[in-house]
Design a protein around this nucleic acid. Sequence first.
DNA 1: TAATAATTGTTATTATGATAACAGTTTTGA
DNA 2: TCAAAACTGTTATCATAATAACAATTATTA
Lengths: 153, 153
Amino acid sequence: MAKSNNNDYDIGLEIAFASSAYRAAGLKTLKAHGQDDITREQYGILVLLSLGDGLYQTQIANILGKDRPNITRMIDILETKGLIRREKDTDNRRILKVFLTETGRKKAEKVKPLKERMNKAQCKDLSDEDIEILVTLLRKVRKNIAEEYKIEI
Amino acid sequence: MAKSNNNDYDIGLEIAFASSAYRAAGLKTLKAHGQDDITREQYGILVLLSLGDGLYQTQIANILGKDRPNITRMIDILETKGLIRREKDTDNRRILKVFLTETGRKKAEKVKPLKERMNKAQCKDLSDEDIEILVTLLRKVRKNIAEEYKIEI
DNA sequence: TAATAATTGTTATTATGATAACAGTTTTGA
DNA sequence: TCAAAACTGTTATCATAATAACAATTATTA
């Protein structure tokens, strides 16, 4: 039963399912380690800031692929929780730079090994070559979609 | 600059980005074709029903990988819009079977070519073999995550 | 220089995602 | 048989996703 053509697969659906499972695992492992006082998305911001502090909100939005209104709200929550702080830029008064507090930095450090374990588990029976191929193909389909539909990536 | 190990890539992130681009393209093409009076997720339900009518809500939830409360809410909206109807099962009074109305069926038919075009665009420079490999690897990482974190898939 | 456009962050609204708790119904098992 | 467990759908709550509109500020350019 040879495959006649590409239409036998819905690649978008395959990617969505893989993404969904990864997401569910992230939620579960955060909860399992008592780290669900903040959410997966909020951790994304903390981890990003732990790599490079002092970003402004639009930069965070672009890097994480989220809208500015959502970043505003999440930063609000994180600020309320004392994990980040905003600081006005002196040169450009439109800009608010975002920094981790010490509490926030510790929080980010806690979640990193959980994420590393997830990555390892996900690739456990894949060779380095498999991984190279998977990443290459994922980036290709992403580029194709982005070009065809003029999506910013 | 040879790669030392798997840790050079964040596969979860690669998948999430690909998924996000596909999602954004879906939203954009629905809007471009004047089909944004209902959402991408709501279309998912219509298309599923167009393949096999009379599913009950838990089945829809399982197939689409969504929670039952969300399905309840979306079915409410689709019912209000006259695109689906609920029907009580005579054998098991807990069950509500869901059917497309004629309007709903037409709506589902409209979106199908848009989705097919997206799939074609996404794979435009991939060989049939590439696609086979991509699907195989995606299913592997999904299975790995699901097993390690005991996620239902 | 002054009008115009673009940028940054905010507020508001609708829909979806995840979770907990619930009522009604059916199945299971002592 | 009958009490306990499981199933189906619902309601409620909080967080995120997507979009539109807005004020304040900065950059552009006529």
